[in-house]
Structure formats: structure tokens, C-alpha cells
Design a protein around this nucleic acid. Structure first.
Lengths: 338, 338
DNA sequence: TTGTAAGCGTTATCAG
DNA sequence: CTGATAACGCTTACAA
């Protein structure tokens, strides 16, 4: 292991000069800088970030806790986060809580002892009103900045979330404008905000949400069965599938009931992807790269105390509607695509 | 920041005792251990891994370089790797080379100065015969163990790869057994091994690969156009799509040419996923969890010098065929599924 | 502008 | 079994 001392010796200078050249801080003459650089190059020296972190009490490392990898969206976001962080000379430790509060605590502990400067937490939904609040508080006291993404679970934390209200509103409104009234909204538990947008679109259009048209699938229930039955009973003309997994389930049901899209049923899904694109499904798209950047910038501003506000900040990211051929216009007998 | 000294003071012992309790090494009486644990708990102490790493010259951290996030497969693997590493008390720094050699070098540098104990490299394909060989050699000299996954790019490294030969062989063979002869194989550049399996299946069945039935899409070419033309000219009865992106392209072409699956064309895709499942596409599946574990174990065995062999080791992971309803049996007029 | 030396929080060695 | 102390490689006052 070649150290700054080795470089210093070879360049006939002191370790401080080596340090100074490698962080571009403090007074140093061009001459010695060159000598150091040359020696360093010859020896293949790279500063030891471990030592630097220990000394500076700053690891320049951020931790990311992903709750659910099955959601491709989060993996994509992870990429944008890492690339943004690298630009800012930060590293990213990635961990997976896999939808378990206990695993999440595990991740928090690991990141805490790794002395990360900050944590991006995609929180697991608390079960039975248990949560990791205490652990989070402990980390905050340890001076680790935590930002939560996509779900506002902990009051005291900055949040970057999606404007799901608006996304659902836009989608619902679009369907209504196309003549749909009997629209089912299918979601996992705890998606109140998306529902609010859905409901609001109805009232804004002077309509009522159809009876039993709000379909919330309990965690471990048989989604296919529930959706099937509702489709048969309610005969909706349109569905809004509020996440990736539910989209798959809805599609399966459509296939098994032999419902043609969009002829017999129109669909809008949350979370755009190459597959949705391939299948011609309309969707509510989130600006992934922008989100990744927003998360990093917000977090680093806190870490470097650029952000003055002492109150938690919430950033809401806008979504947009991507129209493909999964929606039938009921005002016209023939849909314009098909 | 609460340190081992703080704990030591409170427990009326020395820092060595604190150290000993927290790593379960060295002689220590149950009595003092308990005192230490109590004090640590009261103070909310966690050992500082940075300091430990510096002292031990072991960071217990592994770096992962992902070449291409668009391939969902890699994100899934990342999850299994992280979870396996966590069990083994290692951390994972994730970086993305985004298919660029320069970015890859960037990642290598970052991991090197982070003093990771090992690197899992999903290598970028060398362009114009350039590669990061020199940098890799430098890291090896720095005593960082590198394992390459999914592509054997660098001779000196251990590899964990997929038995794509066999996967393609099985797929092709299955199609042939179902009466297909005019089978097109579509792949990105540099997928010789999959092709070998494809070809071998033909010869083993006493058949010849159809003229122009091997379709290799150059990196920045218009895949849709190329595939379309070949489909029109060759009128294949079956296709093997050799990666995720190509599967999407093939599906698009089928749709635009209005080819019904499996009636007019049968399809087998590489890389299984929920979406393939939903669409009823048959596929060649890779055992992700097993692969993740194999990667970690191989790497850690090297790091801890458990592995005796001085020569590079190659681990080949077996694939399996998942049959869905995208394949027509030409021996029977009506496919049994339709 | 440069060098000296103390200290960041651990662990390993050695003496008790 | 326990404690004192010297490292690990770096940064930063402070002195020169």
C-alpha cells in the first residue's frame, strides 16, 4: 500500500504538501505540486478515502435503502442517484430492506456504522403501527441526514415525493373526458393520495364515483381473484392500475376474462416502462432523472448546511400522462386507433 | 460522536475491553462484557467502521460495477448480491458504467480509493480493441480482488458466467422438436456463445441453419428495420430473441407485421421477467439468487484466501427453459394451447 | 510557501 | 483476563 509518506519521500517534500496537492486546498507552489504529482503517478498512489474520512469526520458516502426491488422504478432511480452523486464526488452504498421493517432497521444500522453522511430512505410501510422511528431519531442525533423518498412516513424528514394526486387526477380526468364514468381504481394498501386525485376528478366533473369502484388490494390477498370478481360485477369501461404489480394483475384478469383493450376496457397504468410502451399501454410517467437529481441535491444541501430551513422540506415531483392506444373514446363509436 | 473511549470510561474499563466485546475476539470475562454492553447501549455507541477499516486494512466493502441498467436482470442480481453480502457482514458500493469504458474506469478509480476489498465487475464490451486492462492490473497489484460477471473480458480474473451455450441449445432444440426449421436467432454484437448453442442444435438434429437466419444487430443500428426486413424476406416460423431489448424489438416487429404469436410465429426470449410471464412468452431463465450467491462466495473465498487455486476460476451457471404459450407445435395442426 | 506533529477511532501487541 | 500504547493514512493548526 503506497501512502502519502511514500510519495512525499520520493518527491522530497513533506506529507502536508502531498495532502495539499491532492485536495487543492491551502497554499502550494506549482513547482512542488508538479513534483508530487509526478511521484504519485510513478508510485500509483491514490489517497486513502478511509483515512481521509476518519480524519475529516466526513465519509463522502451516501446510503440508499430500497424497499422493493420488484418495482423497476426504484432500480432506475438508484442509477440516476449514483451517477449524480459521483459527479459530486460522493459514493453510494446500496441496501435492500425488501419490504421488511426489520431488514430496514438492519440497513439503517449498517449505514450508521459505515458513517455515511446521509441516507436516502425509501421507507417500508409500517406494519401494525410499528415503525423505525426510534432508530431514525437515533441516526439524526448521530448527525446523519436522512431524506425519505416516495413515501412520507416520518414527519421530521425532508421528503421528495411524486405528485400522485395530480397524476391520478390527470388520468381520471382524461378518462372522463373520453366518456368513461364507470372507472375502477385498483391500488395496494395505503395509497390514499392517488385515490384523492381520482375522487376529485369525479367531483370536478360533477360525477359520482361508482359504487365499489375503489378497489384496494390487501397485502397478501389474491389480487387476481378480487379484480376478476369486481370486473364481472361492475363491468367497468376503464381501469386505473396504481402500481406496477397491479398493472400485471389487471392485464392477467383482462386476458382471462377475454376483455379486449381498448375495445372492451381502457387502461391507464402508473409507472411507465419499456414493456408498457411495447404493449401500447397509456401511463402516468415520472421524470426519473429529475427525481434522482432532486433527491441528491436536497440531501447534499442539508449535509453541507446550505439549506437554511430548519423545518422539513417536501419536494413534490410532477408526473405526466403518456397516451398510447389503451384508451377508447366512448364519444365516438370507433376509437381513432385500433 | 460517541467513541469506544466514552464507553470505556462509563463502564470503568479500558478501550481494549470495549474493542474486545464488540468483535468477539480475545479473552474477555462475561462480567466486563456485560458492563461494556450496557454502557454502549446507554450511549448509543456503534463501532466506527471507518476507523476499524483503516486499522485492519480491510474495509469489508465490495464494489459492484453495473454496465447496463436497462437490463433489469442486473438490478435483480444486485439485490441478491447485496443481501448475501450483508449476511456475511460486508457492505456494497454500487456504481454504473453505463456501457462506457471511460465511465467504467471512473468507477474502478472510485472503488479503488474507497479501498474496497473486492470488485464485482460486469464488464463493458471493449470498443475498438480498447479496454481497461491496465487499470484492472493496477487494482490487482493494489491487492483488490476482482471478479467479472456475465462476460469474460479479462483473462486473469475469476468469472461467473451464464451457460448461454446450453440455454440457446435447449431453446433451439425445443423449437426443432416442435417441427421448426426456419428459426431466426437475433442478438446484439459479440454473442458468439449463444450462437454456438443455436448452431450446434441444428447439426445435432442433422439440419442446416437457414441462410441469413443469424441476425446480429450492430450497436447503433435500427434494430426494428433490420428485423422487419429479415422477417419479410425469410418468413421464419420461430425466433430466439437473445436479450431483453431485442425481445422488445422483436415484439414490436411482430405487431407491426401483424404476425400472431404463436400462430404465425413462435418466440423464445432470453431473461425471464414478470412481463414475459404476463405476455405468455416462453423464455430461458437464469437462477438469479444462485448466481448472486455464487458471485459473493467466490469473491469472498478469494479475499479470505480460502481459494487455493492461483489460476483464474470460471463458474458456469445453468439456465432452464420456461415453457409458456408462445410456441406452436408444427407437428400438430392445432397448437394445444392456442 | 513549507514542514512538524497532534489527532481522527480503532485494533494488536505486549506487559501485567 | 485486562490495560497501556503504538500504529493505520490522512488533514490541519501552528511554527518556521
Amino acid at each position: 500500500m503506497v501512502t502519502s509518506l511514500d510519495v512525499a519521500k520520493m518527491a522530497n517534500v513533506s506529507v502536508s504538501s502531498v495532502s495539499r496537492t491532492f485536495q487543492g486546498k491551502g497554499y502550494i507552489s506549482n513547482d512542488t505540486k508538479l513534483k508530487v504529482l509526478e511521484a504519485a503517478h510513478k508510485l500509483g498512489y491514490t489517497p486513502n478515502l478511509l483515512a481521509r474520512s476518519l480524519r475529516n469526520n466526513r465519509s463522502k458516502t451516501i446510503g440508499l435503502i430500497i424497499s422493493n426491488i420488484d418495482n423497476t422504478f426504484y432500480s432506475d432511480i438508484a442509477k440516476y442517484i449514483e451517477m449524480e452523486l459521483r459527479k459530486l464526488d460522493y459514493r453510494l452504498i446500496v441496501t435492500y430492506s425488501d419490504r421488511s421493517l426489520e431488514q430496514e432497521r438492519n440497513c439503517l444500522e449498517l449505514l450508521s456504522s459505515s458513517r455515511v453522511d446521509g441516507i436516502i430512505l425509501i421507507p417500508v410501510k409500517p406494519q401494525k403501527s410499528k415503525s423505525n422511528l426510534k432508530y431514525i431519531d437515533a441516526l439524526i442525533r448521530q448527525n446523519i441526514i436522512i431524506l425519505q423518498a416516495f413515501h412520507r412516513q416520518y414527519e421530521a424528514l425532508d421528503s421528495v415525493i411524486i405528485d400522485d394526486y395530480n397524476g391520478s387526477y390527470l388520468a381520471t380526468n382524461y378518462l372522463i373526458n373520453n366518456g368513461h364514468v364507470n372507472i375502477i381504481s385498483v391500488q395496494g394498501e395505503g395509497n390514499v393520495i392517488k385515490l384523492d386525485g381520482y375522487t376529485q376528478a369525479f367531483t370536478d366533473n360533477g360525477l359520482q364515483v361508482g359504487k365499489n369502484n375503489i378497489l384496494t388490494i390487501p397485502s397478501h390477498a389474491d389480487a387476481i381473484d378480487i379484480i376478476s370478481r369486481t370486473f364481472v360485477e361492475n363491468r367497468p369501461t376503464a381501469v386505473i392500475a396504481n402500481d406496477n404489480r397491479i398493472t400485471l394483475d389487471v392485464l392477467k384478469v383482462c386476458k382471462s376474462l377475454n376483455l379486449k383493450i381498448p375495445d372492451q376496457i381502457s387502461i391507464i397504468a402508473h409507472d411507465d416502462s419499456a414493456w408498457l410502451n411495447q404493449m401500447g399501454l397509456s401511463s402516468i410517467q415520472k421524470p426519473k432523472e429529475t427525481i434522482g437529481r432532486a433527491i441528491c441535491n436536497n440531501l447534499l444541501n442539508r449535509i453541507n448546511a446550505v439549506t437554511a430551513s430548519t423545518d422539513p422540506i417536501t419536494l413534490k415531483m410532477e408526473t405526466s400522462l403518456i397516451m398510447r392506444r389503451s384508451i377508447k373514446n366512448l364519444h365516438f363509436p370507433k376509437p381513432d386507433i385500433s
